[in-house]
Design a protein around this nucleic acid. Structure first.
Lengths: 207, 207, 207, 207
DNA sequence: CATGAATGAGCCTTCATTCAT
DNA sequence: TATGAATGAAGGCTCATTCAT
């Protein structure tokens, strides 16, 4: 009985928190980052100002949560994509699939405005970006694995050290997503990415 | 007599404006974008607050001027660099020289923080970015010219349409500068850029 | 049956109230007055926020209770101390014992921070200080009794009217405790108090 | 001409600052310390909120200024009072004059409410009390000098070490002013102080 | 009796902008 | 042209208190 009530209350609380969070995300995707104030969030969410601070320690904490959520949404499927290939698959092929997957996730799940916000936060350097940094490391690790496999399999020429090669691939994905962000909707991320990485792969393939 | 005085005043005015502007640029390059307030600018420039609004309609106007200046500083030498090569020079070689020049300009003349500011403004989409857009077009044009020349000379394979190829090169330069911004000072822009474009060139060279 | 249950509930209620109160007292003694919020009290007591308002009409009511408690804790033993002496004991001696007892109580039972809180409230004049005022009267009465006895016994010179003399002693105890509060822990209340009152007693002893 | 204008502006600014400060002092003397908000100050002073922050870095800075002002008002005349006596004057006499002067200053210049505020701040321990601490040291120094002189002259018995004796006198002045604060206006500070110190002096005089 | 989610007035502070001189 | 005092909207955050369950 008591537990039941407690449960219901907790549920209500969770709902409010989610409402606040979703509202915030929506606003982040609609307005510029600095324009999304706590005032606006609570007004849009239809709760009192104090309520915000029950669920988020500060505005920064909300942003951290936003970033974490971004990372979580992104991070999930990539390894799965990777693991879905038979061990002897062509490294190039896997890599292009991964790129494809990333493009789909950015386009379909994250959305361009959220991505802008992430980039702005990263440039602002005001926030704790460890979550995003962690994700970057993960992405780096996946590229490194694939490239290493490709080198071992003799697909790619080993002219460059692995870590440097990997960095170039990360740079490429960064340039592509950034360009997508600021050219949206006039930039077909997936097509551009596939084409772009095809060039890079051609540039490192062992003749 | 009156004209003379007017002239002197104008000169003094220009000087004050330049002082304000240069101070602002210095601050943009030193502190985070949001930390550069009008107060700080006028204090650092040693003029009164009201004076700022004589020369700049608003803070946004200053930023617009800052962007224009960025573009101007960047834009100047590239064509010169391009024109300094004999007409029959290798397109790859010219392209790498251009990349080298761009890296030098970003590193030496513009500075990482200013670049961050430019990127943030671009993402914020609050400002009138026509100047920067114009510059982008210019950069695009130069890459296009070079790539076209390379294709004509048989250096590059014509698998991709010229404009698409050009876009890839723009994407690459964008990814490189962005990465430089957020990794600074642990990212050697020039070296990375040269290495990166070498791969791209290898990827499109006609075998 | 119903009564029994009611009784149990009441008991439980009393227990909760005491828990809240004791927690509050502990916090008042640990942190600065303004830092002790209802939130912190209920968290430290392990009860819900609403529960606080079942037992205390407001935060001010809690403070009033705190003051009353302070007075009660202080007031209890003094008369006992006084009565423990044979009727013909030296008044000076009794007075010094009383001072000693007071110092012990402040140091051991009340604590310096609580004392600070009492003083702050007294200065703030926002609260109903009747309890403390009553205690002051009580203390005043005891000093008056002792001094009167001393005068009657010829220990003290009767130059000053009794009430004025008493006031001086109250002033002295006030000065000592205040100094203890703000110098804590670099002020040995008991030693200082005994030494201080010795001077006063020397100052009023009959030639 | 220019200087003239600058001077006029500065004067105006000073006037505003004084207006703010005086208003604040008035409010400190009227309402409880925590009730005096920046909002109320600026409203009472008839200026905009932002104006407050032109002249005071923060609310704390205002309070610090308030304390400094208190100390300045207090500190000025004491040494003068001391120095006005011929070198061979009776130490007791000088001391009583000093007490008299102090009482006059507290009563006439400082005022009881300001004193309350000072005490509250001291108890709150939240503020930088170095100014007040400095003043306390000064007061301590003066008492020490006088007592030392009295001992040397054989007026006072040297039973207690000088510093301990001095401390008792500081305690006494503290007790007296505190009692004055909370009993005001039913406590004649000057009369009480003189009578009180007379007892102390009698208590330490060498018979 | 107990809970804890929700409230909202109020606090301190910042900063782009205006305007009389 | 130059000044700098003054403005006031807005922002992030706190906390005593209420109330449905």
């Amino acid at each position: 009985m008591k537990n039941e009530e407690t449960g219901r209350k907790k549920q209500k609380g969770e709902k409010t928190k989610r409402k606040l969070f979703n509202t915030a995300v929506r606003l982040f995707n609609q307005y510029d980052f600095g324009e999304v104030t706590v005032d606006r969030i609570v007004e849009a969410a239809g709760v009192a100002k104090g309520t915000f601070y029950i669920y988020f320690e500060s505005k920064d904490a909300l942003i951290a949560a936003f970033l974490l959520d971004y990372v979580n949404r992104v991070d999930t499927d990539y390894r799965a994509t990777l693991d879905s290939f038979p061990p002897d698959t062509n490294a190039s092929q896997i890599l292009l699939s991964l790129i494809s997957k990333i493009a789909d996730t950015l386009t379909g799940t994250i959305g361009c405005q959220s991505m802008r916000t992430v980039y702005k936060l990263q440039l602002a350097d005001t926030m704790d970006m460890s979550a995003v940094k962690g994700y970057d490391r993960e992405l780096y690790g996946m590229f490194a694995d694939l490239l290493e496999r490709g080198i071992e399999r003799g697909e790619f020429s080993p002219i460059l050290p692995l870590n440097e090669l990997t960095r170039h691939f990360v740079v490429a994905i960064r340039g592509l997503s950034y360009e997508w962000c600021i050219r949206y909707p006039d930039f077909d991320l997936k097509a551009q990415a596939l084409s772009h990485f095809q060039i890079l792969l051609d540039g490192i393939k062992s003749n």
